Computed example of a mutant assay.
Amino acid sequence: MKKKLDLLEELQGIDQTIDGKKAEQTTLKADITELEQALASVQSALTGHQTQMTELRRERADLDAAMHTEQENIKRSETNMKEIRTNKEFQAIGREITAARKQVSDLEEQQLQIDTRIEELQATIDTCQSELATLADSTKNGSDEKQAAITALQDIIDAATAKRDVIVKELSSNLVRRYTQLRDQRRGQAVAEARDGSCMGCNMQLPPQLYNTLFKGDEMYFCPHCQRILILKQEPAAAAE
């Protein structure tokens, strides 16, 4: 019986190691995801700025086209003015030229406003691109480092799993099933040490008769409070003291 208890204790130690290493892997994977999300966020912001820049340049091109049209209208009106014969026609063309020049002035103001926005946006894009390049390098380096750590942890897990398989083969399927159920129910701890009359799994006092019986080591006993498998590491002499 002592051998079975020793194997169960060893099995639990291995399982806890595997659980711990898997938890570390999960944390590292979350860190990689966080790095990638941060990079994606900056990339998305850059894409948004670039889309905005495309729209501003389109607006600027539209203004240029409108400006060209108005300037051509002024030239045509000025040419026509030389050919008019009546004062009424002269005044009409004069109004057309005035209106066109007013439109040109408005377009020039809009062009200046857009040019300012383009200049400011370009500065933002330049900063964003620089940040993206730096972040891309740090993300790759950080991800590579964390992935290497994940791989190293997996090697430990694989080795522990192989060792676990050997131990499981030495135990009955019923005992392994009971052990697994207890681990699931008791937050990963199916085996608990009995010490100084108490179960170290739930810290509850054990019945004195049960605690004394543990020294015999002839059977497998369970804590009446948490149902964990009890193991006793103390020597009878030490318990008597």
Rank of each mutant, 00 (worst) to 15 (best):
K3I: 13
L5M: 08
D6H: 13
L11G: 03
G13S: 07
I14A: 03
G20Q: 07
K21T: 08
K22I: 08
A30T: 14
D31M: 13
D31V: 15
I32K: 03
L35C: 04
E36A: 14
A38H: 13
L39M: 04
A40W: 12
A45K: 14
H49Q: 05
Q52P: 06
T54L: 02
E55T: 15
L56H: 13
D62T: 15
D62L: 12
L63V: 12
A66Y: 08
M67W: 11
Q71H: 09
E72L: 13
K75P: 03
R76L: 05
K82I: 11
R85V: 11
T86N: 00
T86F: 04
K88N: 02
K88R: 11
E89A: 14
Q91M: 11
R95M: 01
A99Y: 13
A100P: 05
R101A: 04
R101I: 10
K102C: 00
K102W: 01
V104T: 10
L107T: 15
E108R: 14
E108V: 14
I114T: 10
I118K: 07
A123R: 14
T124R: 09
I125Y: 02
T127D: 00
C128I: 12
S130A: 11
L132S: 05
A133C: 05
L135N: 04
L135Y: 10
A136H: 13
T139G: 02
K140S: 00
N141Y: 07
G142L: 01
Q147M: 07
A148C: 03
A149K: 15
I156K: 09
I157T: 11
A160E: 03
D165R: 14
V166C: 01
V168F: 06
K169P: 00
K169V: 05
V176L: 02
V176G: 04
R177C: 02
R177W: 08
R177S: 06
R178G: 01
Y179F: 14
Q181C: 07
L182I: 09
Q185D: 08
Q185H: 15
R186F: 08
G188S: 06
G188I: 09
A192N: 02
D196P: 03
S198P: 01
Q205D: 03
P207F: 11
Q209E: 04
Y211P: 00
T213S: 00
L214S: 04
K216M: 02
K216C: 01
F222C: 04
C223S: 06
P224W: 10
R228Y: 05
I229T: 05
L230V: 10
K233R: 06
